[in-house]
Write a protein that binds this DNA or RNA. Structure first.
Length: 919
RNA sequence: GGUCGCUUAGCUCAGCUGGUAGAGCACCACGUUCACAUCGUGGGGGUCGCAGGUUCAAGUCCUGCAGCGACCACCA
């Protein structure tokens, strides 16, 4: 059977079949009955649902690898480990994709009409959607596919509607006119989180507004008080100067504000301003929002286009005037010359008009964060609009408490503070979107003024009986369904068996970018609708970036396709590489221009595991091995040592997994497998496994090797499921011991006190040190592989001495030592070393190397170094060099001299040893 | 503007409760009778950003400074 194994690991030959076998074996599916009384303890993760139209990228690769590692580990620990998969309908994103396809055919969604357009989107989703879930299988994700959900599924839609109506009845959902973020391209409202502030170099313009003639006297008084905003034009009119970054909004100004306690402007409060270009007169009002220290201390107020100005209008009662259309053009109520103009054109036109009137007062460069639509990056327009909101303060209370009292933990924990800060300052959530793709708002309006929010579609108005009801045209924000995900996927609002069994869940694995969008809201929904947090651990991983630290993205073309990596190097190689870089709170860096190099660590490790496994299987042969108890007496030092090391690996990996220190698990296991099993244990037992070796010793080695590999494969399985399962399935097994059906359900190793062996570790440590030192000396003196040498060893510790004496075979095999002498080395020509274990080592060189030649060689090298040193020193002694050459050059020369001296001294010591001088 | 974080080998970063500075990649030399050249063996390379302080002991704790980054925020 071992003949079937190729010398190079070929993931394609094993991964798809393995995955199929797991799925067919039902290992991913967890029914509610599994946790029914007396059953297993559940462990539940709900997937962050990718957009239904998404294509797998490395970010998904990372996110899902981490989840799968946790799920597989808990499954092996005997938990009912459930990972619920699914996709998100992704309102704007999906609608945009379909609109673009329509645009390619020269059509707009309005050409189709609402119903046909939605049908078109469904069609698109049915044909191309969800393929990302198939791609997740290729990287080994062990989701319970029987539970796959989509946020627009009927039952999830029912949950959404139930929640909306409940919150409406509780007064937590309300409708109102507020300034919202409006995307003039997507034609929809955006939540605060969807409007991304983007650092932009813009301008701030100063504009002059003339005061009404009757305010002349007041202006003079104010000017005398030091009103810096005031100035007089050549024609004698008084003007005040205001600043703005968006001059076009001045067409909607309905007032100018000053601080109520700003004495400079007291006389002007209540006076009127003649708003240029519009022919309108607007009042000067007092409002505490104005900062007297900033600029001139006078602010133009545009209530319909700025949230703060809107609030000023609410407080002072000045008018609200919306001068823009939904697509960002100047509206009907704007002066005729600007009407219909696009907002940025209007900006230029307004500025030109001000200049013409002599009312432009200058401009300056102004860097500020301009909000952009997170989907299309169009500059967002703050706009007055009638929208639906959720009152968040009451919902935030328990969710904030949960973080404060440690019910919910964050990893890395610095996000705890960020979360709490956001929750403390939470603002109401605008949930209506002017889209067609999504959950339609379950609200009907009656001509009589009644607003009806209900669970079942109404046929008549409950108040007046009219059947002429009009449904709200808008849909809900995508996150209004995702925030319910942890319980809606379990059948809520029905009180299902699944809900009882699997709610609350345990770990949420996601990126910090959606901490507010999603994680915080899920926690709030969990408390509001289930009375309990949906999970207790939030693990926030880093972002996948390219070699230059840029986020991987389609537009930059710097992405790496996970499926390509799986195809070339295997899912295990990809998973290992990602996990090994996954230090808490750090980003993952991969070079899209060197994919092979980026995943070399994982690929090489896979190959190493494969070859070690191959060799072990060949050496072990087909028969079962003896149980540990039967071979204990015949065990050698290396057997006891490797099992003790396995115990360390078990302890470390388990602890690290519990604390999400995944990269340390990867590192520990890499070192255990490669650095200990391969580099030492396999090398040491080769002879004992060979045919013709002592039977008892061979059996002890066979059993130990099987136990060590079994343990290593189990520990590695969550990270590298395929290769470990493949090799593990071929391992011989101890006679009479029950073998789990598949590695995926083999129990996670627990500590076995009978395997711990500090003595074996100490002795093995001494032996390793000795071997390494002998190898080093061999290299140093150029003693070829073929030359057997004698070493003299004196160990003060009798146990170490005995070990060295017993381990002649190991020294022979690993350091080509022909003879170990315990006699005092005496004086002689050779190399001497004292090791940390206390071993004094002497390696005679007479007869081993051509001492005379080596002496000559060393002397020659020393002479060469001396010559170089002399020339350097001469240079440094030259005063004009030292004083005239640049300081760095002189320093470099000094460093060089020091280096040469050091090298010469080292070689001198070596030479002394060869002279036979006792040191 | 506020908050938080980072600064350790050429590169990317570990270093969790203070106790002789680590890994991977890259580099240099040697090696193909050995399961693996996707390998083996050995090696070079770091005043742990700077300045103070606490301590028997500081990369690790405290203070200040500098540089970089992230998040939040309405400054017209």
């Amino acid at each position: 059977m071992s003949k079937e194994l190729a010398t190079r690991f070929d993931p394609r030959a094993i991964e798809p079949a393995r995955y199929r076998a797991w799925q067919e074996g039902g290992h991913f599916h967890v029914p509610a009955s599994a946790v029914a009384e007396g059953g297993k303890e559940p462990y539940v993760i709900v997937i962050p649902p990718p957009n239904v139209t998404a294509v797998l990228h490395m970010g998904h690769g990372l996110n899902n690898t981490i989840q799968d590692v946790l799920i597989r580990w808990r499954r092996m620990q005997g938990r009912a480990s459930l990972w619920i998969p699914g996709t998100d309908h992704a309102g704007i994103a999906t609608q945009n994709v379909v609109e673009r396809r329509l645009a390619a055919q020269g059509k707009h969604r309005t050409d189709l009409g609402r119903e046909a357009f939605v049908a078109e989107v469904w069609d698109f989703v049915h044909h191309t959607g969800g393929s990302i879930l198939e791609q997740l299988k290729a990287i080994g994700s062990s989701c319970d596919w029987e539970r796959t959900r989509f946020t627009l599924d009927d039952d999830l839609s029912r949950a959404v509607r139930e929640v909306f109506v409940r919150l409406y009845e509780k007064g937590l959902v309300y409708r109102g006119e507020y300034i919202i973020n409006w995307c003039p391209r997507c034609h929809t409202a955006l939540s605060n989180e969807e409007a991304e502030p983007t650092e932009t170099e813009g301008r701030m313009w100063d504009l002059r507004y003339p005061l009404a003639p009757e305010a002349c006297e007041a202006a003079a008084t104010a000017a005398a008080m030091g009103a810096t905003a005031l100035s007089r034009l050549d024609d004698g009119r008084w003007t005040l100067t205001v600043s703005t970054t968006r001059p076009e909004t001045m067409l909607g100004d309905t007032g100018v504000a000053v601080h109520p306690e700003d004495e400079r402007y007291q006389a002007l409060v209540g006076a009127m301003v003649e708003l240029p270009l519009t022919g309108r007169r607007i009042p000067i009002v007092a409002d505490a929002y104005v900062d007297p220290e900033f600029g001139s201390g006078m602010v133009k107020v545009t209530p319909a286009h700025d949230p703060n100005d809107f609030e000023i209008a609410q407080r002072t009662g000045i008018a609200v005037m919306d001068v823009m259309t939904p697509d960002g053009r100047m509206a009907e109520n704007a002066p005729e010359r600007f009407r219909g103009m696009e907002r940025f054109e209007a900006r230029a036109a307004v500025l030109a008009a001000f200049a013409e009137l002599g009312l432009a007062a200058g401009e300056k460069v102004h860097v500020h964060a301009v909000p952009q639509c997170y989907r299309c990056h169009t500059v967002v327009e703050p706009r007055l609009s009638l929208q639906w909101f959720v009152r968040m303060k009451p919902l935030a209370e328990p969710a904030l408490q949960a973080s404060r009292d440690g019910t919910i933990t964050f990893t890395p924990d610095r996000w705890k503070k960020v979360y709490e800060h956001w929750m403390e300052n939470i603002r109401d959530w605008c949930i209506s979107r002017q889209l067609w793709w999504g959950h339609r708002i379950p609200v009907w309006y009656c001509g009589c003024g009644e607003v009806i929010a209900v669970r079942e579609d109404p046929t008549a108005c409950p108040k007046c009986g009219s059947a002429a009801l009009e449904r709200d045209p808008d849909v809900l924000d995508t996150w209004f369904s995702s925030w319910l995900w942890p319980f809606s996927v379990l059948g809520w609002p029905e009180e299902t068996e699944d809900l009882k069994a699997f709610y609350p869940g345990h770990t949420m694995v996601t990126a910090p970018e959606i901490l507010f969008f999603w994680v915080a809201r899920m926690i709030m929904a969990g408390y509001e609708f289930r009375g309990e947090a949906p999970f207790t651990q939030v693990y926030l991983h880093g972002t996948v970036r390219d070699a230059k630290g840029r986020k991987m993205s389609k537009s930059l073309g710097n992405g790496i396709d996970p499926l390509h990596v799986v195809h070339e190097f295997g899912a295990d190689a990809m998973r290992y590489t990602l996990v090994s870089q996954c230090a808490i709170g750090t980003d993952i860096l991969l070079d899209h221009e060197d994919v092979e190099g980026s995943f070399a660590a994982g690929r090489n490790f896979s190959n190493k595991i494969w070859n070690a496994g191959r060799f072990a299987l060949m050496s072990l042969g087909d028969g079962p091995v003896k149980p540990l108890a039967e071979v204990r007496g015949a065990m050698e030092l290396e057997d006891r040592w490797i099992l003790a090391r396995l115990e360390h690996a078990v302890a470390a990996s388990t602890q690290d997994l519990e604390r999400f220190r995944l990269h340390e698990v990867a590192e520990d296991l890499y070192h255990f497998f490669w650095g200990e099993i391969c580099d030492w244990y396999l090398e040491l037992v080769k002879a004992r496994l060979a045919p013709g070796a002592d039977a008892a010793s061979r059996e002890a080695a066979r059993t130990t090797l099987v136990l060590a590999l079994d343990g290593a494969f189990r520990l590695l399985h969550p990270i590298m499921p395929f290769i470990t399962a493949e090799l593990w399935s071929r391992l011989p097994w101890p006679e009479g011991e029950l073998r789990p059906q598949d590695l995926i359900v083999a129990p996670w190793p627990t500590l076995d006190p009978t395997l711990g062996d500090p003595e074996a570790e100490a002795l093995m440590g001494a032996l390793q040190e000795l071997i390494v030192e002998v190898r080093r000396l061999r290299k140093e003196y150029g003693i070829g592989e073929g030359v057997r040498i004698t070493i003299h060893v004196h160990a003060p510790d009798p146990a170490v001495a005995a070990t060295v004496a017993e381990q002649g075979a190991a020294l022979e095999r690993l350091a080509r030592v022909g003879r170990v002498s315990t006699e005092p080395s005496g004086a002689g020509i050779g190399a001497h070393a004292v090791l940390k274990s206390g071993i004094e080592l002497f390696l005679p060189l007479e007869g081993v190397i051509d001492v005379e030649r080596e002496r000559t060689r060393l002397a020659g090298e020393i002479a060469k170094l001396d010559a170089q040193l002399a020339s350097t020193e001469k240079k440094l002694a030259n005063e004009s060099f030292v004083s005239r050459a640049p300081a760095e050059v002189v320093d470099k020369e000094r460093e060089k001299a020091a280096g040469l001296r050091e090298q010469a001294a080292k070689l001198g010591e070596k030479l002394d040893a060869l002279q036979g001088v006792a040191s």
